[in-house]
Amino acid sequence: MSRRVLITAGASGIGRAMAEGFAAAGFDVWITDVVAASLADCPDTWRKTRADVSDEAAMAHLFAEIDAEWGGLDVLCANAGIAGPTNAIGDIDLAEWQRCVSVNLEGAFLATKYASPMMRAAGQGSIVYTSSTAGIYGYPNRAPYAAAKWGIIGLMKTVAMELGPEGIRANAICPGAVEGPRMEGVLEREAAIKGMTRDEVYAGYAAGTSMRSFVTAEDVANMAVFLGSDAARLVSGQVIAVDGHTENPDPKV
Rank of each mutant, 00 (worst) to 15 (best):
C100E: 00
I66N: 11
A146Q: 03
L39I: 09
V186Y: 12
G135F: 04
A88W: 08
G71Y: 03
T45R: 09
G208D: 00
A37P: 13
S131W: 11
R198N: 00
E200N: 12
E218L: 15
T209R: 07
A83Y: 09
G208T: 00
K194V: 14
A11Y: 02
T216H: 11
V5T: 04
M119G: 06
L94H: 11
C42M: 03
G138M: 12
R198S: 00
A160I: 12
T45C: 09
G135H: 01
G71F: 11
E184S: 10
T49L: 05
D28P: 12
G84Y: 01
P140A: 08
M156P: 13
G26P: 05
P43I: 07
C42R: 00
D55G: 06
M223C: 08
G154I: 00
I31R: 08
T45A: 10
L187T: 02
L234F: 12
S236Y: 03
F226C: 04
T197H: 06
I92L: 15
Y114I: 13
R198F: 08
G90W: 12
D41M: 13
A19D: 02
A177I: 01
F109L: 15
G167N: 00
I153K: 00
R4T: 01
P43N: 06
S38H: 09
G208W: 00
K48Q: 02
A147K: 05
E166W: 12
I31H: 02
S2M: 12
A95W: 11
A19C: 08
A224W: 02
S2Q: 10
E69W: 04
E162R: 04
R4H: 04
C77D: 08
A95I: 14
N87Y: 01
S116K: 10
G185K: 02
M223L: 13
V128Y: 04
I92H: 11
K149H: 04
N104W: 00
E190M: 13
S12H: 10
P85E: 02
L110Y: 07
T158A: 11
K149D: 01
P249I: 08
A25Y: 06
I82F: 15
T209Y: 07
G180T: 13
T216F: 09
H61P: 14
T32N: 01
E200S: 14
V242P: 08
L234S: 10
A40T: 03
P140G: 03
E190Y: 05
V159D: 01
R16W: 05
I127E: 01
A17D: 02
E65Q: 13
R233D: 09
I240K: 15
G176Y: 08
I152V: 14
E96R: 07
M1H: 11
A115V: 10
G13L: 15
